[in-house]
Amino acid sequence: METLYLIFIDPFVQMVVEPAFLVEVLIGGLMSGVMYSLVALGFVLIFKASGIFNFAQGIFVLFAALNFVGLMDLGVHPILAFLITVGIMTVLAFAVDRLVLRPLVNQDPIILFMATIGIAFFLEGFGESIWGGDVRPVRVGIPDAALFWEAGFGEILVQSSDLFAGVIAAFLVTVLALFFHFTPVGRALRAVADDHQAALSVGIPLNNIWVIVWAVAGFVALVAGIMWGAKLGVQFALSTIALKALPVLILGGFTSIPGAIIGGLIVGAGEKLFENYWGVPLLEGATEEWFAYIVAMIFLFFRPQGLFGEKIIERV
């Protein structure tokens, strides 16, 4: 009885009694959700265009951030460092295309997936042997102050960097959406995503398209890396956190950009709520390690195509 009360009643009582804490937890969760969304966004871009599940997207985030911070530590101006890193990510996209994707064209998706695990390990070693494995703080002038917001029911603490990250993410998603819908390259990308061969036959150069997609994913990774680095410092742990983008994708569907965003927010907010109201009081905490994965797994039973994915019809 006691346990049932603690599971089903008490957490909700707490939420009502202390709404300010609830809002803080939610905001904190949504902010880490934004980060998951940004990583998941990179996954979706690549998956849509090439059907490849890029396990290395998390490492892309780390690698981009490492380069950016490394250049800044060498005294390069942030904007220049940003541009150089975009260049590096483009070169990386090109290299991945030539060295990994092309030789493996027409292979099983599972083989390509394993190849991206290879890319992940290579990049991790490569990035760290150039820039070292220490935690590096990012100082790009993102305002980091504690703001107090006086709501009707109490005072709420918000980090300005969190708000900033939210705004940047929203901006980025809008730009990408416009890019996909209103530019020729975006249209070509959507065509490729639909059917490779059909796209080829109407004259869309597949190889360049893939390089572009991987470069765009690299760009998204850089933005995510800077945001994340500003919060936690650039460190190896980023790539482990980035793995959470996988359950996000299960929730949102592998082909849906809005799905990636909403899935990320749900996962971020959900795991913080669960940790604070159920995890710490009942399960000795650290539930954030697995919460997202277990939710995703349960989700797979009921809606394997995700919230926004399309239903798959199998043919013989």
Partner: peptide, 17 residues
């Protein structure tokens, strides 16, 4: 350790290809 990571990554890709 870093070289090990790179080598593992490269080997995986090499063998898959």
């Amino acid at each position: 350790t870093h070289i090990e990571f790179m080598l593992f990554g490269a080997l995986i890709i090499f063998f898959l290809i």
